[in-house]
Simulated assay, not measured.
Amino acid sequence: MVSTTPPQAKTWSRRGHTPVVKVRGRSRRRLSIAALTCYKPGQRSRPIHRPRKDDGRHDGRKGFSRRDYRDLLIAAHQPLGGTIVLVRDNLNVHKAAGLREVAVSRDWLTIYSLPPYAPDLNPVEGIWSPLRSGWLSNVAFSTPEHLIQRIRQGLHRIQYRPRLIDGCLAETGLGINP
Rank of each mutant, 00 (worst) to 15 (best):
K40D: 05
K40Y: 03
P41G: 07
R44Y: 08
R46H: 15
P47T: 09
P51T: 11
G56T: 08
R57M: 08
R57S: 10
G60C: 05
R61T: 11
S65F: 02
S65E: 11
R67L: 12
D68E: 14
D68R: 04
R70C: 02
D71N: 15
D71F: 07
A75S: 12
A75F: 09
A76N: 08
A76V: 09
H77M: 07
Q78E: 14
G81V: 01
G82T: 11
G82Q: 04
T83I: 14
T83Q: 15
V85E: 11
L86N: 02
R88D: 04
R88K: 15
D89W: 12
N90T: 05
N90M: 15
L91E: 09
V93N: 02
V93P: 05
H94N: 08
A97M: 14
L99W: 02
V102R: 00
A103G: 10
A103H: 03
W108C: 01
W108T: 00
L109V: 14
T110A: 14
T110W: 11
S113C: 09
P115V: 04
D120F: 06
L121F: 07
L121H: 02
N122M: 10
N122Y: 13
N122C: 05
N122H: 06
I127H: 00
W128P: 01
R132A: 07
R132N: 14
G134P: 02
G134E: 03
L136T: 06
S137R: 14
S137F: 07
S137W: 14
N138L: 15
V139Y: 02
V139T: 13
P144E: 11
I148C: 06
Q149K: 08
Q149V: 03
I151W: 06
I151E: 02
I151P: 03
R152A: 13
R152E: 13
Q153I: 14
G154A: 13
G154I: 04
H156E: 15
Q159G: 03
Q159E: 13
Q159N: 15
P162L: 08
D166K: 02
G167V: 04
C168E: 05
